[in-house]
Amino acid sequence: MHLDDILSEWTFDPSNLNVRLVKGKDGRDVIQMRVDLGVLQLETTGRPDGTAFKECETYLDHLLVVALEQPETVLTEADCAEVDREFMQFYHRRICWLRLQYYHRAVMDADHTLRLMDVSNKMSPDEDWTSSHEQYRPFVLFHRTQAEALGELEDNTAEEAIQAINNGLETMRSFFIEHEAEEHFDEDELVVRLTEMRESLRSEYAVGKTLKEQLHAAVEEEQYELAARLRDELTRREAN
């Protein structure tokens, strides 16, 4: 099919993320994203562009092998460009999974990006390059937390969705603390949005404090017997 035919039958809507899951000619699933000037097509597994690197499925996998075999390796300019390509490709697929409501796949792609950040930062050519990428960590954590919470809501309970948001917020807080910016945490736009999502779930599903929230409060108030009971209940739930 000529590209003109695809574009004419799938009009770009600038007010929405235009995404669909379709079958390729060989029967495999692919994601298509309609953008202003055409269509992006992404593989659903491995690297979104389908590229392999020396028998590694993604550039992250390649870097992990390099780091294991040559721990002192520093990223070259070409390496940095490839890392950036992989960041962008996984960003596109992550937002597609969110739009398609494949929440667990969005979590997986967010985790890939976070691992890529960790590995590439250790191999970074300089501090400026590291900082230019680390600034996006809260954004990736935001997407991951959203996706995990919605997945928990879909598969389990609203309480577990709320706890997923709490866990994500704590991870984000650690990032702010690490970068000596904790005073800006509560007012950060992404933090505010996750907090609003949590309280909306709490209100809509009539959820009080989660077990972990109750445990935290009991410890803060030095109610150690209550804390012990809550900890036992948490252990029991996690074992099931």
Score class of each variant (00 low, 15 high):
Ser120Pro: 05
Gln135Tyr: 07
Gln146Trp: 12
Gln101Gly: 04
Thr76Asn: 09
Gln146Arg: 11
Glu77Gly: 03
Ile6Asp: 10
Leu98Cys: 10
Glu77Arg: 13
Arg193Gln: 14
Asp36Ile: 02
Ser8Asn: 13
Leu98Arg: 08
Val74Gly: 07
Met88Ile: 02
Glu213Phe: 06
Asn167Gln: 09
His184Pro: 00
Tyr103Arg: 02
Glu204Val: 12
Leu211Phe: 05
Met117Glu: 09
Leu42Glu: 13
Phe53Met: 06
Tyr102Glu: 14
Glu187Pro: 00
Gly50Gln: 09
Ala181Ile: 04
Asp79Lys: 04
Val83Phe: 00
Arg173Lys: 15
Thr210Trp: 01
Leu190Ile: 03
Phe53Lys: 06
Gln101Lys: 15
Asp84Ala: 00
Glu220Ser: 11
Phe53Val: 09
Leu75Lys: 01
Leu230Met: 10
Thr45Ser: 15
Arg99Glu: 15
Lys122Gln: 13
Tyr103Ile: 02
Arg47Asn: 12
Glu180Val: 11
Ala81Phe: 04
Glu148Lys: 14
His216Cys: 09
Met197Cys: 08
Ile162Arg: 03
Leu194Tyr: 09
Leu63Lys: 00
Arg236Gly: 01
His179Val: 05
Leu100Phe: 05
Glu220Pro: 03
Glu77Leu: 10
Glu86Gln: 00
Ala147Tyr: 01
Gly24Ala: 15
Tyr205Thr: 06
Ala106Met: 05
Asp5Arg: 10
Ala161Met: 03
Val207Gly: 08
Met108Phe: 09
Thr210Met: 02
Val74Asn: 06
Pro125Ala: 07
Gln163Phe: 02
Glu69His: 07
Asn166Ile: 08
Glu159Leu: 04
Leu190Met: 14
Tyr103Cys: 07
Gln89Pro: 00
Trp10Thr: 11
Ala78Asn: 13
Lys23Gly: 01
Asn167Asp: 15
Lys212Glu: 11
Arg105Ile: 01
